[in-house]
Design a protein around this nucleic acid. Structure first.
Lengths: 340, 340
DNA sequence: GTGAAAGCGCTAACAT
DNA sequence: ATGTTAGCGCTTTCAC
């Protein structure tokens, strides 16, 4: 930067002003300095800039699993909104490992980012508390710790389950199944609760069986599908709610192998509108998770907290999911081929 | 850090030694200092640390599209290998925008990261040249600029196309189609070339039609599928190579709507083994893109360049793709239900 | 509007 | 082995 000053024939402080407060500099000097910057290919050192200024224009986003499309959407939503505010978002992927997540948080803490966004899989209150105790604003996404010790952005997962069951019931289905083990995952537990609520509202008119799966991955769905196929044949099942889209698609595949028609014999739907769920021959009805909105809202809350300073009151934003109806529950319709 | 020194009753320099050269400190002092660090909840300021030390332990990864599963795999591969080396990877998503990509590169440049990994969609030589001229090592992934002015990690996309066509021919298919417009995308052009080579090797025994699509997205596939369905019915087509998996799945969906059997009437395959391609009722044969390996290799090349310093010779690593055969070209087989 | 100078928090070479 | 000190590159008062 001293070089730039010399080449431009001005003082070092003036170069700094050109970079940070261009309005405070006369147009002529400004041009001279910018010329020198271009000539020298000068790139300001953001480490020194942050050290001296004491503030950062970056936000750290820590996601537990970057291959999950919800978290990708969150990252994009956060990034786009942050860009509007002149901030940039750095993403660290924890690769489903708690220790890596901790390392990622510490990294951003050390880098003195202006704030951290955390999308964990399970409870991370301890880590959040540690970071927050260092005075770093932190917003948690997609997990409700219960304690309101930080801002949170959540999707109403109970409503997700409720919407799903409600939809099937509205379509005339009365013998439902909810597929998805691993109740220790918060979204699963909440969606299950919502499904139950919708079924209970029908007071006995609608039955519900709950099918555990070992894992939430396709193989788990294939196994569950075999079990469910028998239920369909026995006339005990006409509507399936899979807790994830991937599970739902696996189940459809098994049904197809058994010549069980979807949605003719049984309607199938997922719960976490996933880009991976597009491809099926039978597009899957699902529930939209509003990932872009979650990311955007999280940045908004973070900036608010930074602005508020000491007298900040934590806020929890609950986003409402939306039903996305496609043919796996209502029958065939392909946009590109309307005459079918 | 001065506080830590005071609490521990040692000099500031000793605290620095504890952090950076623990071996140079007596066990007793070490324990005292670590105690003080824990007590005060001290977190070192990495901006100051980098500024003073003049080196960074982070690598910047700029990807053009984080929702593309290849880039996600690259990120994971890079991150895992970097972690083994005690480095961490920061991901910036350019959201398919060239200006954002430039901003991301500049950001990492300003942050004085030890090196940059760039996975662009189209040519980015100018940007790379600019960054490199600042002395920052940069490795380009998945795009061959032609000029060997930096290390590159590529997948042999011509081989991808060749493997795909070779597979269909080996399965007895003789009337092929290659689907995928947008030849200005390097992977598309290369895969097309590979397909042609395989067909030419058969010297007229095998025919090939090339079907352009407006976009590489599912709607584009649906439209192409309609056209192809007519070709199948007319007996002019028995094997389809879609340049992406998503395109392939869309085509299968249209075939199914027309009661055309896959792979009975026509085999269909994709070219970029995509996690999104799992779900279909007919799992898609495709070609593995080795994303994890690409990420890993890119970090390896970057570290080598950093180590080599001035006398570094740029290297291009060409990874070989692998065929992943599934039922869309060979008939039904579902692992979970072997008796089908 | 401009230039000089005092740090920001840390590292590393030096002296002890 | 430990303490001392001069910067790293920048921002920002503060006089001019």
């Amino acid at each position: 930067m001293a070089d730039v000053a010399r080449v431009a024939g001005v003082a070092l402080g003036t170069v700094s002003n050109v970079l940070n407060h261009p309005a405070k500099v006369s147009p002529a000097t400004l041009a001279k300095v910018q010329g020198a910057i271009a000539e020298l290919g000068f790139v300001r050192n953001s480490n020194a800039q942050q050290l001296a200024a004491g503030r950062s224009s970056s936000i750290g986003l820590v996601v537990i699993d970057i291959s999950n499309s919800l978290f990708v959407d969150i990252a994009r939503g956060a990034q786009r909104f942050a860009a509007e505010l002149g901030m940039n978002v750095l993403v660290a992927n924890s690769d489903n490992r708690a220790d890596q997540q901790r390392a990622d948080l510490d990294f951003f803490d050390e880098a003195r980012v202006s704030g951290i966004l955390l999308a964990p899989m399970e409870d991370a209150s301890d880590d959040v508390a540690r970071i927050r105790s260092h005075g770093r604003p932190t917003v948690v996404l997609n997990y409700d710790s219960g304690k309101a010790d930080c801002c949170q952005v959540l999707i109403d997962n109970e409503e997700v389950g409720y919407l799903a069951a409600r939809h099937l019931i509205d379509m005339g289905r009365t013998r439902l199944a909810f597929v998805g083990g691993r109740d220790y995952l918060q979204p699963v537990a909440l969606r299950r609760r919502g499904v139950r609520r919708a079924v209970e509202e029908e007071g006995g008119r609608v039955s519900l069986q709950e099918v555990p799966t070992e894992n939430l991955d396709p193989p788990g769905g294939l196994r569950a599908g075999e079990e469910l196929a028998g239920e369909v044949r026995a006339g005990r099942l006409d509507g399936v709610i899979a807790v994830t889209d991937l599970l739902g698609m696996a189940i459809i595949q098994v049904f197809n192998a058994h010549s069980i028609e979807v949605p003719g014999d049984v309607a199938v739907m997922g719960c976490d509108h996933n880009s991976a769920a597009w491809g099926g021959m039978i597009p899957l009805t699902s529930v939209q998770m509003q990932g872009l909105d979650m990311g955007r809202e999280a940045v908004r809350l973070l900036m608010a907290e930074i602005e508020d300073g000491a007298d900040h009151v934590h806020v929890t934003t609950m986003l409402q999911p939306e039903l996305v109806v496609r043919e796996s529950t209502v029958g065939r319709r392909i946009a590109a081929n309307p005459d079918l």
